[in-house]
């Protein structure tokens, strides 16, 4: 078996003491308690872990033909995460936490309401990032007041996470200043470091006519390119998409408010209408099993009801 088996993990973890993570382990690795992997060759323990990605919750959106449960979907997602037998190490929200509004007070209210709802998550560590709906109309002022920095890094069990802001500029650029910050940060990382980039818009030109691109995304990718183990998780396009730029994998997540059509598949981009015969179709969240030693990420899509 060469893949992390989430179901197996959950089942085994539920057995109590002496639990092991019966994931795929290549030669030279053995099992330790609670998911640790021991590299016998180096004598070092390297923990595998998993985190959950939620995206494009668009709190405040109203459109019964698109999502008649606009006020309930995020709450269901919180319940779905809380019902996971083994809780993730942390949760990331990859932008568009709230739906845009011109009214500054309403924007702040939506952010406050969003925080109240996701405050119900059992997992204590949650990393937020902004989408253009949160941050483009005021260059991130309200967002920073509510959630903190627009771009930052954190480290977890051997993986370096970099949050890149490609939304507070309404023109969808990362900007020179942030690029310099990114380059300085990457300089501190070895070329074989495990790096995960979290961002909102795609960094590559997925479909620029629909704003599915970052104007200076190529410069970001160029900065990442010397690093051998880089994976990007993003949101914005309200559907799964998997793309490679050289050795760098880019994975987009589903929305928790409404799906969007496949890139360029219709003349005008517009939310996919609600399907009463299949409620919540096209919406979802995902778990990501991280195996830092192998620099591999196993994605499992979960639906809103957690089934």
């Amino acid at each position: 078996m060469n893949k992390f088996d989430r179901r197996g993990f959950i089942k085994l973890a539920g057995l109590g003491g002496g639990v092991v993570f019966a994931s795929s382990l290549s030669r030279g690795f053995g099992l330790n308690a609670l998911g640790s992997v021991v590299d016998y060759a180096n004598g070092k323990a390297q923990n595998d872990f998993y985190f959950v990605q939620l995206s494009d919750t668009h709190w405040g959106f109203a459109g019964p033909k698109v999502n008649p449960d606009a006020e309930g979907t995020l709450k269901k997602a919180v319940q779905a995460v809380n019902s996971l037998e083994v809780q993730p190490d942390f949760i990331v929200f990859t932008g568009d936490l709230t739906h845009t509004t011109d009214n500054v007070q309403v924007r702040k209210d939506r952010m406050s309401q969003f925080k109240d709802i996701v405050g119900g998550l059992k997992v204590p560590t949650v990393h937020f990032m902004a989408g253009e709906h949160d941050a483009s109309l005021d260059r991130g002022d309200a967002y920073q007041e509510a959630f903190g920095k627009l771009n930052y890094t954190f480290d977890h069990k051997g993986v370096h996470f970099v949050v890149v802001d490609n939304v507070s500029d309404p023109g969808a650029s990362v900007g020179e200043s942030q690029l310099n910050w990114l380059k300085a940060d990457l300089k501190q990382q070895k070329t074989d470091a495990r790096i995960v980039v979290l961002t909102h818009r795609p960094l590559f030109d997925l479909y620029p006519d629909w704003d599915w691109a970052t104007k200076d995304g190529t410069a970001v990718i160029d900065a990442l390119m010397p690093h051998k183990n880089v994976t990007v998780f993003y949101g914005h396009i309200h559907q799964e998409n998997h793309h490679m730029t050289g050795h760098i994998a880019h994975h987009s997540a589903k929305s928790l408010m409404f799906p969007l059509p496949a890139p360029g598949s219709v003349p005008k981009k517009a939310p996919v209408p609600w399907d009463a015969s299949a409620p919540y179709k096209g919406l979802g969240l995902r778990s990501i099993e991280a195996g830092p030693k192998q620099a591999k990420y196993e994605i499992k899509e979960l639906n809103v009801t957690g089934a």
Partner: peptide, 19 residues
Amino acid sequence: FTFSCDVFCGDGHEEMTGT
């Protein structure tokens, strides 16, 4: 050929396109 607004301008920006 599609032309579009490429500066986020608010709720409705996504559909601001022409041909």
